[in-house]
Design a protein around this nucleic acid. Structure first.
Lengths: 192, 192
DNA sequence: CTTAACTTGGACACGCCTGTCTAAGATAGC
DNA sequence: GCTATCTTAGACAGGCGTGTCCAAGTTAAG
């Protein structure tokens, strides 16, 4: 049922309870039997996703390796999360917490990323010409861009992931980073 | 009246006709006296913005200078446009053309940018490891990020603009680009 | 002053979504 | 077989936005 919400809202941010219900194979009233209101449903979904994402990211050990290596790990993990849960890029998530929270509502993601960025700057591995908040925002924005290219069918999952990772590294790392030629063949215009 | 729509929709993408009307200092029915429907209003607004943006960008001469210099000009111009018309970053614009148009609906902007990117790659000045569409999307995404930081009050206009420009250059240019220390004082965390 | 153009307030139909209620059906466990 | 639980169908109220109609008011121009 939450799965249905995650799937539907990933495609249609303004989906109604009805839409979610049919996707779950039940009828609207049944949804209300489990969640008293739309807000409650969204809240439960976000809690679920938060736990899921947090557990993935917590298993990463970002504090031991040098910041650039940690960033690479983080990028791999965050990209696979984005692939699995497109809804995370949807305004549904951001709209869930209107009060002036953090600059962004991807709390479980941004918290660790922020920490990592701070460390990378302290150790001189990351660029430090702009506010930390900017780096975090830019990384997320590139995640959005890649996810969008993916759902629009403009790029394959591998292409989008590679573009995302490379671009973030170019943006964040102090030195050119030797441009690791990852697993994907980057034919310069072979989109879908 | 269109100005009111531009202003209101820039802050509230899902604003109603009522909202736009009061912002324009009139009453809802008066809006309908000028535009037969919501779609017509949005259409007129988009046409107006398109013309405005196109005229700004056409006055730029992006084809004469080397691609990197042209990109810098384009960034300056596009940033001032973003500052002037935050609504351009709103989903209102993208939602206006659902049919499988271009990868994006910022047509007047993307067309020239795409052209520029192509040239930069041909002349070896720009990175070419990923599809052209990715570069365009990423640039727009960074524009969104900067605009969002701005409207969220996280960064000053100068900070956001500098971050936007620098980040795009880092992303697109083949060589480090000597990091021009532009007009803005980039104190590394002096937001607001 | 009188007319034409524009604006206003009131009212209403329609559609869509949310949230609630109730009676009837299905299902599993005791 | 009977009962507790879940699901379903139908219906309904209330809210909100869109779009339409119309009568009365305002304003500027002839």
């Amino acid at each position: 049922m939450l799965d249905a919400a995650i799937a539907v809202l990933g495609r249609q941010a303004e989906a109604s309870i009805e839409d979610i219900a049919v996707a779950a194979g039940v009828v609207r009233q049944t949804v209300y039997a489990h969640f008293p209101s739309r807000k409650a449903l969204l809240g439960a979904m976000i809690d679920y996703l938060t736990a899921e994402v947090a557990s993935t990211l917590d298993a990463l050990d970002l504090k031991t390796p040098p910041a650039d290596e940690a960033l690479r790990r983080w990028l791999s993990a965050s990209w696979s999360i984005i692939e699995r849960y497109p809804v995370l890029l949807s305004p549904v998530i951001a709209d869930a917490a209107p009060p002036g929270d953090e600059y962004d509502r991807h709390r479980p993601v941004t918290a660790q990323l922020m920490e990592l960025v701070r460390r990378g700057r302290r150790t001189g591995v990351f660029e430090a010409r702009h506010p930390e908040a900017w780096i975090v925002t830019a990384v997320i924005a590139l995640g959005h861009a890649a996810g969008q290219q993916l759902t629009a069918g403009q790029m394959s999952p591998n292409e989008a992931g590679a573009a995302y990772r490379d671009s973030v590294l170019r943006l964040v790392l102090r030195q050119p980073a030797a441009e690791d030629g990852s697993s994907t063949k980057t034919t310069s215009s072979g989109a879908q």
